[in-house]
């Protein structure tokens, strides 16, 4: 049985329809790569999945239950990693991760998260002096402290070096092996064995009208 399903999802941003009638059904262990040109709605879809945006139409369900029935439970299932790293320049890497761990994550996973992205040596460094790739790694390390079943990654590899990208790929593989779901929007090829592919161009709102005409 599929865990996360979207039915006829339609998203409108600022009066402009971004995508329409999008359907998917993801089972445990699924990875899905979102592709499509800029502005095709990859980020919007991830934000809809996270519950940050309400879809204009359609529904999103977890094990057949619409997420609207219990938004708090849905938030406890989702880790969202957007374009912004959400780091506080005045806090150290460890303090930043500890905050997310205490706020609905697992407080004892901070060390594991630091290790997971080779940040142990930077643990007491203020985020202000990190490089952009290091900031990205801290943002991704949040996935480990939150340890939630659904990972929504928006361009997760931006700024990452090769070794860090491989580490991320390993983590995603381990997450899927435990039954987690990963949805990633990316332009860079990223190794996701037997991943599904959702081409946002297929759900462009104009396309349906074009077909009907």
């Amino acid at each position: 049985m599929s865990e996360l399903t979207g039915q006829d999802l339609t998203c409108i941003r600022g009066e402009r329809p971004v995508f329409a009638r999008l359907n998917f059904a993801w089972t445990a262990g699924t990875a899905c790569q979102l592709t499509g040109p800029n502005g095709a709605g990859k980020s919007s879809l991830l934000r809809v999945l996270a519950g940050l945006i309400q879809p204009a139409a359609g529904s999103l369900s977890w094990h057949g239950t619409p997420i609207d029935e219990d938004r708090e439970a849905h938030r406890a299932r989702v880790s969202y990693c957007g374009h912004q790293e959400a780091l506080k320049s005045a806090l150290t890497v460890r303090e930043g991760l500890q905050f997310w761990a205490d706020l609905g994550g697992l407080p004892n996973r901070v060390d594991a998260a630091l290790e997971g992205f080779e940040l142990t040596g930077l643990a007491d460094t203020p985020a202000r002096i990190l490089s952009s790739g290091q900031k990205r790694r801290v943002a991704l390390a949040r996935l480990i402290v939150e340890s939630r079943p659904i990972w929504l990654l928006d361009e997760p590899t931006v700024g990452l070096d090769k070794a860090s990208q491989e580490r991320l790929e390993h983590l995603i593989a381990a997450h899927r092996a435990e039954g987690g779901i990963v949805a990633a929007a990316t332009h860079v090829p990223i190794a996701l064995p037997d991943a599904k592919n959702l081409d946002m161009a297929d759900f462009a709102p104009g396309r349906l009208r074009g077909q009907a005409a």
């Binding site: 940050l52 374009h83 912004q84 506080k88 706020l103 949040r142």
Partner: peptide
């Protein structure tokens, strides 16, 4: 303002904790 600009605010709204308490 700061939390909003650096993206932390949206992550805070995504935690299961009740937002009014935060």
């Amino acid at each position: 303002q700061q939390d909003w600009e650096d993206g932390a605010l949206e992550l805070i709204t995504l935690t299961p904790a009740p937002l009014p308490i935060l």
